[in-house]
């Protein structure tokens, strides 16, 4: 287990380094820079003044020199300052990471709470009304984009029923209840499509397992259907579910960008979006580093979890 873990972690580090370099180069290849954005169209600076601004921002240096500087600072735990706001990126990320984590964990929780029971129900009631209803939910959930759901939920739960706030954020440590009230709609909008996908996987995976020989053996031994499904079949059926969820965390983090923007949550997605729109390179690099790090970490975790659930998966 230990060598397996070590190998996975080493590979993960390389993947992360690859992402960092790729993003570092890509944001600089995209046309436009922070100086153009900052100055806009009304200031009319001379080319010398523009060049001077670029020099002061340090974005006129060759790309490898910029990377060397940034990477050297990164090794000391410094992600630099935003070019637009001069705020420390580490402290901004520290403020924003918990928000995105809370959002994705809640969305994941909602997805699992809906998907696993619904998937199991659909599998054991195969071909019956419950199965069709579950499939309908899965289809609708997959078809509806989360930004559309978000607007729909705002109009329904905020405007019509006046139950939940339409946006904004309350710090978790200041008022946990209000914080949760502000998180319900975002988490629901984000979690539903994952719930839909997971329902389908759970259903098909359980159906597959229920047709295996060992399940037939269990049934022939006279075990109740409940014991057969929950004790014997479900654990094996959940292996592909774990994989899918692991991979979907990346999708969740991507979806969080849009959801955070709509509901005005101060998460990493919105931070990255602001950085991208205004070509604030260090902000984009910092945000991508954290998101890619989280994604890589979740994948390592999934691999470990996998190895724990199914010993056959431990490659050596």
């Amino acid at each position: 287990m230990i060598p397996f873990l070590a190998r996975r972690l080493l590979l993960a580090l390389f993947a992360l380094l690859g992402v960092i370099i790729l993003v570092f180069v890509m944001v600089r290849l995209v046309p436009g820079d922070v100086v153009t954005n900052l100055v806009g169209i009304d200031a009319h600076p001379t080319p010398e003044q523009l060049a001077n601004l670029r020099r002061l921002f340090g974005i006129d240096l060759p790309i490898h020199v910029q990377f060397g500087k940034w990477f050297g600072a990164l090794l000391t735990g410094d992600l630099g300052e935003s070019l637009r706001t001069n705020r420390s990126i580490v402290s901004d990320l520290a403020l924003r990471l918990p928000v995105t984590l809370e959002l994705t964990v809640l969305a994941l929780g909602i997805a699992l709470l809906i998907a696993v029971p619904l998937g199991v129900l659909a599998a054991i009631k195969r071909g019956q009304t419950a199965d069709y209803l579950a499939s309908l939910f899965a289809l609708a959930g997959l078809a509806a984009p989360n930004f559309w759901l978000a607007i729909l939920f705002i109009l329904l739960f905020s405007l019509q029923f006046r139950l939940l706030p339409s946006g904004g954020y309350v710090l978790l440590n200041e008022n946990p209840l209000e914080n949760l009230r502000h998180m319900v709609l975002p988490a629901l909008s984000l979690g539903l499509s994952l719930a839909a996908a997971t329902t389908r996987i759970t259903r098909s995976s359980l159906l597959e397992v229920l047709n295996l020989d060992y399940v037939r053996t269990a049934r022939s031994k006279g075990l109740s259907e409940r014991v057969v499904v929950y004790r014997h079949a479900l654990k094996n059926a959940l292996i592909p579910v774990v994989t899918v969820i692991g991979l979907q965390v990346g999708t969740l983090l991507g979806g969080a960008i849009i959801i955070e923007e709509i509901f005005g949550l101060p998460g990493i997605g919105r931070f990255a979006l602001e950085g991208i729109n205004l070509r604030d390179y260090p902000v984009v690099q910092g945000a991508v580093l954290v998101v890619a790090g989280a994604f890589v970490l979740v994948n390592v975790l999934v691999d470990v979890l996998y190895a724990l659930i199914d010993p056959r998966m431990r490659y050596d």
Binding site: I151, I154, P165, S166, G168, E261, I262, F263, P266
Partner: peptide, 18 residues
């Protein structure tokens, strides 16, 4: 000041007294 970038979320916040 609170920040509501989405226009629907913003107008809804006003209409609901948030």
């Amino acid at each position: 000041y609170s920040y509501l970038p989405d226009p629907t979320a913003r107008t809804t916040a006003l209409r609901t007294g948030q």
